[in-house]
Computed example of a mutant assay.
Amino acid sequence: MSVPIDLEKAHAPKDVDVSAAGRGVWLVKVPKYVSQQWKTCPPGTDVGKLKISKSKIPNKKPDIVFSTFNVSEKKTISSGQSPSVTSASSSSASSIVPLGQVPKVPLTQNHKFLVTNVGNQKLVVMSQARPDPNSSDSFSDKLCVEGKVMQRAECHPIVDSNYRLLKREQMQAHNTPQRQMKVVPMSVPHKPIRERIIYNEDKKAKKTDKRSRAEKNKVMDVLFNAFEKHQFYNIKDLMGITKQPVPYLKEILKEICNYNVTAPHKHMWELKPEFRHYKSADEKGST
């Protein structure tokens, strides 16, 4: 069910908080597995540590290394549970990660920042605070300018033992099929039957089910009772009613019925005039 949208309220001018517009911020592009972890973080959680070391070579940009924290490990530590640390030395007997699950990320993962200048671009970071879901006004979002982009950077992982372990688990998770065969430890009580066997049994049953001829008077009584309900029948319907062989049934029908070869009741049987006894409309109304 779609909720109607008030276009006037949606496009109405809104107040924007620009108190932090002069603050300088960095625009950083991070890998997908890092962003997936950050989405699960509550506000105010430390997600990593940034180390900036100046180069001894003049006119060279400083080296920036960003070490990310494993958010799931930090949660278990804060809750008092014992964390399960995944190390590179214990990766010889690694298990296959099921498809659709995020593979285990090492406790710390080092990344290198490749910093570039913004140039003549003017970029700002804005935030939008969602209103109270119980509120009737769905267009009261608060817009704020969080700062102006001063630097752009790309977060590239440093290829070490932890990163190789992460990529191996990602490949295993991607290559693991969704449907797998499992060995049933106990025997199955009902074995499957081939369709061909069932077909042959039905065919034999049809051959043995030979229709025997009934007395002529009994067959005629059944036909007369059927024609009292309907005026026209085809041969298949009469076979189902009388349960008689086709040649024997046609012999009786030729005596008491006429076969229509023209429309609108083509290829259907009807009682001969001398055997017909249909109630008129007056008789039906009186009854």
Score class of each variant (00 low, 15 high):
P4V: 00
H11F: 15
D15I: 09
S19A: 10
L27Y: 13
V28P: 10
P31C: 03
Y33D: 02
V34Q: 04
S35E: 14
Q37M: 12
S53Q: 14
D63C: 05
V65M: 04
S67R: 04
I77W: 07
P83C: 03
L99W: 10
H111R: 04
T116D: 15
V118I: 06
N120W: 06
S138Q: 12
K142P: 12
E154T: 10
C155I: 00
I158N: 01
R168N: 12
E169V: 03
T176K: 00
P177C: 01
Q178S: 12
V183H: 08
V184T: 11
V188P: 07
P189C: 01
P192K: 04
I193G: 03
R194E: 15
I197R: 08
I198W: 09
Y199M: 13
Y199S: 13
E201C: 05
E201T: 08
D202T: 06
T208H: 09
D209V: 04
R213L: 13
R213H: 10
N225R: 10
A226I: 04
E228N: 07
Q231I: 07
I235V: 05
D237G: 05
G240S: 06
Q244F: 04
P245D: 03
I256V: 15
V261I: 14
T262E: 14
H265V: 01
H277I: 05
G285T: 14
